[in-house]
Lab assay of single mutants.
Amino acid sequence: TFYNFIMGFQNDNTPFGILAEHVSEDKAFPRLEERHQVIRAYVMSNYTDHQLIETTNRAISLYMANL
């Protein structure tokens, strides 16, 4: 899942690491979701930090390219 992918960046001092920290603390994050459209919609609806949203979009693109 995307959640498992992004958790691989925990403790990294990178934008993906920052995203992983936010996702791990977000109890409502769709952890079992595999459809990138649902993940993107969730982030757009629940996150207000523009940098975090952009990082999510980049992470989703990388995740999709590696499926």
Rank of each mutant, 00 (worst) to 15 (best):
T1A: 07
T1E: 03
F2S: 02
Y3E: 00
Y3H: 03
Y3S: 00
F5S: 00
I6C: 02
I6N: 00
I6K: 00
M7K: 05
G8E: 11
F9W: 05
F9M: 06
F9I: 03
Q10S: 10
Q10L: 15
N11K: 09
N11L: 07
N11I: 05
N13H: 10
N13Q: 11
T14C: 06
T14N: 07
P15V: 11
F16N: 01
F16H: 01
F16C: 06
I18Q: 13
I18R: 14
I18H: 11
I18T: 10
L19N: 02
L19S: 01
V23A: 03
S24T: 08
S24P: 03
E25W: 09
K27F: 08
K27Q: 11
K27T: 11
A28H: 15
A28I: 06
F29Q: 01
F29M: 04
R31W: 06
R31L: 05
L32Y: 15
L32P: 04
L32K: 11
E33Y: 03
E33S: 06
E34H: 15
E34W: 15
R35D: 15
H36L: 14
H36C: 12
H36Q: 08
V38N: 07
V38D: 06
V38I: 10
I39V: 09
I39W: 02
A41M: 11
A41L: 11
A41G: 07
Y42N: 01
V43R: 01
V43I: 12
M44R: 07
M44Y: 13
M44S: 08
S45I: 09
S45G: 09
D49C: 06
H50C: 10
H50Y: 12
H50T: 12
L52E: 01
L52A: 03
I53M: 07
E54W: 06
E54K: 08
T56F: 15
T56M: 15
T56V: 15
N57A: 08
N57F: 14
N57E: 14
R58D: 12
R58K: 13
R58V: 13
A59K: 03
A59D: 01
I60R: 00
I60Q: 01
L62S: 06
Y63I: 06
Y63L: 06
Y63C: 04
M64G: 05
A65H: 11
A65E: 12
N66S: 15
L67C: 10
L67H: 12
